[in-house]
Simulated scan of single mutants.
Amino acid sequence: MPHLAFSQMIVAHRGASHDAPENTLSAFRLAWDQNADGVEGDFYLTADSKIVCIHDKDTKRTAGKKLVVEGSTLAELRKLDAGKWKAAKWANEPIPTFAEVLKTVPENRTFVIELKSDEKIVPFLKAELERLDHSKIKLLIICFNDKVIADCKRLLPNVKSHWLTSFKQNKTTGQWTPTADQIAKTVKQSGANGVGMQGNTQVIDAVFVDTMKQGGCDEFHVWTVDSPTDANYFSKLGAFGITTNRPAFIREALETKTAAN
């Protein structure tokens, strides 16, 4: 029986960020137009305890003027243009709030919430989720900080979460870390439902996935995969989701491959 491509969730990384300015409402709306199953956005807590969508600690790269996000108020951040760096047609895109991004998510699609601030953001995220109607969409919280994930599981026990990790190779031994066993241990200790891993085909193979599962980590997604060959590879390994800057391109590639099989 062929592996069905649509068993993977195709998630738009910072929205459809290959085509539109990352982490803007235009990027998220375009992702839905491109038939993404989910969108992933990055969230910081501002100086006045609001949650905003931006990847970097400061606004220099995407807004031209440097403001430290956690040291700035929402009003200060909203004065900036987060779109024109991509192209003139995207000018006047503000840095969006958490609530604005959530409201773009269509029924039965997934909102992947990457928390960039430390544990202090979790109570405010809880308050936002209690305030906003998300009953018709799916949520997935992701974070590189396992302490943040542990807090999310404590305060938001019914929301799925994945701990995030990248991989580093020891230049002397060639050993990659973290190992599958180390990932499973961190996932278990934090209470996460799974792991989101950098899509490194040198590290992740069937044995690696099986080892994680034996350690109690049954679910994984990969980021950021823009190669059809890599997407097909992780699809066959049973990835829960594939995060990509190019959701329409990757979906078409997977569906074409499935049809060919």
Rank of each mutant, 00 (worst) to 15 (best):
residue 36 A to W: 11
residue 71 G to V: 00
residue 16 A to I: 08
residue 93 E to Q: 15
residue 77 L to E: 06
residue 22 E to T: 01
residue 97 T to H: 08
residue 14 R to D: 10
residue 77 L to C: 08
residue 17 S to V: 00
residue 114 E to N: 04
residue 98 F to V: 02
residue 23 N to L: 02
residue 52 V to H: 13
residue 43 F to K: 07
residue 96 P to R: 05
residue 111 F to E: 04
residue 105 V to R: 03
residue 108 N to A: 10
residue 16 A to H: 15
residue 40 E to D: 04
residue 73 T to Q: 06
residue 2 P to E: 11
residue 37 D to M: 10
residue 54 I to R: 15
residue 23 N to Y: 01
residue 76 E to N: 03
residue 83 G to I: 02
residue 2 P to M: 06
residue 85 W to E: 01
residue 7 S to Q: 15
residue 44 Y to M: 08
residue 101 V to E: 05
residue 11 V to Q: 03
residue 83 G to T: 06
residue 53 C to L: 10
residue 105 V to C: 10
residue 58 D to E: 12
residue 82 A to F: 03
residue 28 F to R: 03
residue 21 P to Y: 02
residue 12 A to Q: 12
residue 114 E to W: 01
residue 60 K to L: 12
residue 5 A to W: 13
residue 85 W to I: 03
residue 72 S to M: 08
residue 42 D to K: 06
residue 32 W to T: 07
residue 96 P to M: 05
residue 40 E to K: 02
residue 70 E to F: 07
residue 44 Y to G: 07
residue 85 W to Y: 13
residue 47 A to K: 14
residue 100 E to S: 04
residue 92 N to F: 04
residue 28 F to V: 00
residue 7 S to T: 15
residue 99 A to R: 12
residue 81 D to W: 04
residue 80 L to W: 01
residue 19 D to Y: 14
residue 19 D to K: 08
residue 69 V to A: 12
residue 86 K to Y: 02
residue 68 V to I: 15
residue 96 P to V: 05
residue 32 W to A: 03
residue 16 A to D: 15
residue 97 T to E: 11
residue 88 A to G: 02
residue 92 N to Y: 05
residue 105 V to H: 06
residue 81 D to H: 05
residue 73 T to N: 03
residue 112 V to C: 03
residue 21 P to G: 07
residue 16 A to L: 04
residue 44 Y to D: 01
residue 71 G to F: 04
residue 114 E to G: 05
residue 16 A to R: 11
residue 47 A to R: 13
residue 75 A to I: 00
residue 72 S to L: 09
residue 21 P to K: 04
residue 43 F to D: 07
residue 92 N to E: 10
residue 73 T to V: 09
residue 8 Q to A: 15
residue 27 A to S: 14
residue 3 H to K: 15
residue 110 T to W: 07
residue 97 T to Y: 09
residue 86 K to W: 02
residue 18 H to I: 00
residue 53 C to M: 13
residue 80 L to C: 02
residue 75 A to S: 11
residue 112 V to M: 05
residue 114 E to Q: 05
residue 87 A to S: 13
residue 36 A to C: 06
residue 16 A to Y: 14
residue 81 D to N: 09
residue 110 T to N: 02
residue 34 Q to M: 09
